[in-house]
Amino acid sequence: MISFGPFTLVANERLLLRQGVPVDLGARAFDILATLAARPNEVVSKKDLLAHVWPDVTVEEGSLRFHMANLRKALGDGKDGARYIATLAGRGYCFVAPISRSGSRNDVHSEVAASYHANLPSRLIRMVGRADDAIALSTQLIAARFVTIVGTGGVGKTTVAVAVGHDVIEVFAGAVHFIDLGALSDPSLVATTVASTLGLSPQSDDAISELIAYLAGGRTLLILDTCEHVIDAAADLATRIFADTPQTHILATSREPLLVEGENVYKLAPLAYPPDDPELTVSVAQGFPASQLFVE
């Protein structure tokens, strides 16, 4: 356990607390923090960070910058004099906050740890026009176990999936795992990416079988996000997990259905928008969800 400022980091439980309250931190941002905090006052190169955080995937530095920005925002880095992570141009990053280590965390309520194994991205403070979709999907997911949210690019599939994950997190006692497949270019890495997100290191070439053995141990929700460009591999993985682990629920997002046994398709329509009417008033137009989202 590592403590710094108002924060406590429990790396083996993927838990970050701020004064005892769980901090909603994405999986990649958490991995970046854990890597840097384990090596305080040491410069960690971008290459090393990419290798630790994306061990089985080749990604661009832009992904690292994106998740680093999210991490700094979650920590409040730079606000009110707080300083945790320094950027060294051309070299990498360094964790600069004073830390203390301990081997136990008896002061942390056990229920908090038990309920926060999820790696969900933060829920939007306000989700425009999708509350009914989230409610319907949560109900369908619990009952049917395997649902794919299908819709055009940019329609809000990921936003809704994350909201559903937060809505049902207590049902799964925190065992909700968000897997972003969008950065993958090689379909053969789908299974190892899922395993890596769950904290597994496959010991054989059959990562799916190892995943199934792991998932057989309890109730879990897997959110497979952005499946369309690796759809065959994602479909094969989802089929085997659904068939062989009856306590695992799967929520996928894709521009097209996976077309496999057990899948229930939820079509996410575009937000309602104002008609092309010259008599339309501003007040009426602002009542449509698409207008509200555009204004925000």
Results as ranks from 00 to 15, higher is better:
Thr226His: 02
Arg126Ala: 13
Ala235Gln: 03
Asp186Ser: 00
Ser283Lys: 10
Val128Glu: 05
Gly156Phe: 13
Pro202Asp: 14
Phe178Pro: 01
Ser110Arg: 14
Tyr116Thr: 12
Ala213Leu: 07
Ile32Lys: 03
Gly5Met: 02
Ser115His: 13
Leu200Asp: 09
His177Lys: 04
Lys157Gly: 11
Leu237Thr: 00
Ala207Glu: 06
His109Phe: 09
Ile32Leu: 15
Phe178Met: 02
Asp77Val: 00
Leu36Ala: 02
Val230Thr: 10
Ser45Pro: 08
Leu211Val: 03
Leu49Val: 05
Gln247Glu: 11
Leu222Ile: 00
Leu237Trp: 02
Gly76Lys: 02
Ala243Ser: 14
Arg145Ala: 12
Glu42Leu: 04
Leu16Pro: 10
Thr87Asn: 01
Val171His: 13
Ile179Leu: 02
Asn264Glu: 08
Ala69Met: 03
Gln292Lys: 14
Gln292Leu: 12
Thr220His: 10
Thr152Gly: 09
Glu228Cys: 05
Ala173His: 07
Ala243Ile: 06
Ala11Pro: 04
Ser196His: 15
Val112Cys: 08
Ala269Glu: 15
Asn41Tyr: 06
Arg28Phe: 09
Tyr266Arg: 05
Gly103Leu: 14
Glu261Arg: 00
Ala118Trp: 13
Leu271Asn: 12
Asp244Glu: 15
Ala285Tyr: 13
Asn41Trp: 05
Arg14Ala: 13
Leu9Gly: 07
Ala238Trp: 04
Pro270Thr: 11
Ser254Thr: 01
Gln203Ile: 10
His166Thr: 06
Pro22Glu: 13
Thr35Gly: 01
Ile135Phe: 07
Ala86Tyr: 00
Gln286Phe: 14
Ala195Met: 12
Ile125Glu: 14
Ile212Leu: 05
Pro274His: 12
Val284Asn: 09
Ile125Asn: 13
Ala89Trp: 06
Asn106Lys: 13
Arg28Ala: 14
Ser209Ile: 04
